[in-house]
Design a protein around this nucleic acid. Structure first.
Length: 358
DNA sequence: GTCATAATAATACTTTCGCG
DNA sequence: CGCGAAAGTATTATTATGAC
């Protein structure tokens, strides 16, 4: 991964040399500067620029359940209006939803999935599967059961190699630069904040997608996990590869340790140093991660993927696909039926009902 | 080097209001 | 009602600095 001269100059921090002359971005003072630093081209990062926080994904999930209008989203998710407004606008702008006038009305709109949006379904299922596997309290029952109409099985979709159709994991995949490799300016503006309280979006329907997003609901979390999948273990490695603020990195690592995604292990004692190693629970995040990677390749790379994947097991280059383990067919939203393993009524209590007690 | 803390910038959320 | 803008508050991200 060679870095060109011009990029080097950008990457250099002002504090690197003693004298504090700014390289040249002197005209800041406005929001003009952000996006100044470069980040590696990455389909996951691009995907996360669209689904920049958990809400965006949950809105998509509801869309797959058939929700179409503003108030439908609002009541299903108990999302603040303003937040919903801005998320819908973003999703429309990015072309995963489209806003259409409802027939017979001059002012009611509905939000429909575009092809691009419809295609995020497999990623959604990968998130769901992860939550079912690792975050479900009730061992016996997952909140939502999928039935694959193509083959009739009760389906637990897996992420697999498009060449041999065997499930993939971080350990069985290698990488090399693709035609779209390189660096690009980061998205202007700051990254989205995490949602206020984690429990906030668990109040809607019980959902394994929500639970998964509680762990990796923001872009930085995904980026930290990405670096871990690419072999980074130490604080400093991640820090330098991501140009992430140190306290944010600290925060995310601690968050991940709390959630059993990383273990913190001392590798040196004279100066105490620690490294962060993925647990099996952490390694399993590879499935949703790579599913979103594939989506970014399909829709945001203009046919020039930044990275090419090779499946060690079969030896071929491949694209990640989400398939039904029974019939090996790729899944899509149209071929799935659902069964709820919970009482829907119970989970649609009026707002704030859960707050008032002594 | 590996963070922690404090100060500051920016955004999520709450509330209120307006418009057809 | 259905939707969103505006204003104000709460919380988080970023920057700067420093402890060890």
């Amino acid at each position: 991964m060679p870095i060109e001269k011009s990029e080097m100059a950008e990457l250099q921090t002002p504090s690197a040399d003693g004298q504090s002359r700014r390289p040249r971005a002197v005209r800041k003072k406005k929001a003009a500067e952000p996006g100044g630093h470069l980040e590696r081209n990455c389909s996951v990062a691009r995907t996360m620029n669209i689904f920049c926080d958990s809400w965006a994904f949950l809105i998509m999930r509801e869309a797959f359940f058939g929700v179409r209008n503003f108030d439908g989203f609002r009541s299903a998710l108990e999302i603040p209006r303003q937040t919903l407004t801005s998320r819908l606008r973003l999703l429309v702008q990015e072309g995963v939803l489209k806003k259409v006038l409802m027939e017979g009305s001059s002012k009611r709109y509905e939000y429909r999935l575009t092809k691009k949006g419809y295609d995020i379904y497999p990623s959604c299922m990968a998130l769901k599967r992860y939550g079912d596997t690792w975050l479900n309290d009730d061992e016996a029952k997952v909140p939502l059961e999928l039935r694959h109409t193509t083959c009739g099985c009760v389906c637990e979709p897996v992420v697999a190699c498009s060449s041999c159709l065997e499930p993939i994991s971080a350990a069985t995949v290698t990488y090399r630069d693709g035609p779209g490799a390189g660096h690009e300016a980061g998205r202007p503006g700051r990254n989205a904040r995490r949602a206020y309280s984690n429990s906030r979006f668990l109040v809607g329907r019980p959902s394994s997608v929500s639970k998964t997003l509680e762990i990796i609901g923001d872009k930085w979390s995904f980026m930290v996990v990405r670096e871990a999948f690419f072999g980074a273990r130490r604080y400093e490695q991640m820090q330098s590869r991501l140009t992430i603020a140190p306290n944010i990195l600290t925060d995310r690592l601690a968050h991940f340790v709390r959630h059993d995604v990383f273990v913190r292990r001392q590798y040196s004692s004279s100066p105490p140093r620690y490294e962060y190693v993925l647990t099996s629970k952490g390694r399993d995040l590879y499935a949703p991660f790579i599913a979103m990677f594939a989506w970014g390749d399909r829709w945001l790379s203009q046919g020039k993927p930044p990275l090419i994947l090779t499946h060690k097991t079969c030896g071929n280059d491949f694209n990640p696909v989400v398939i039904c383990p029974e019939c090996k067919q790729e899944i899509d939203a149209g071929s799935m039926r659902y069964r709820l393993n919970y009482d829907p009524e119970r989970y649609h209590a009026p707002t704030n009902d859960h707050l008032d007690d002594g």
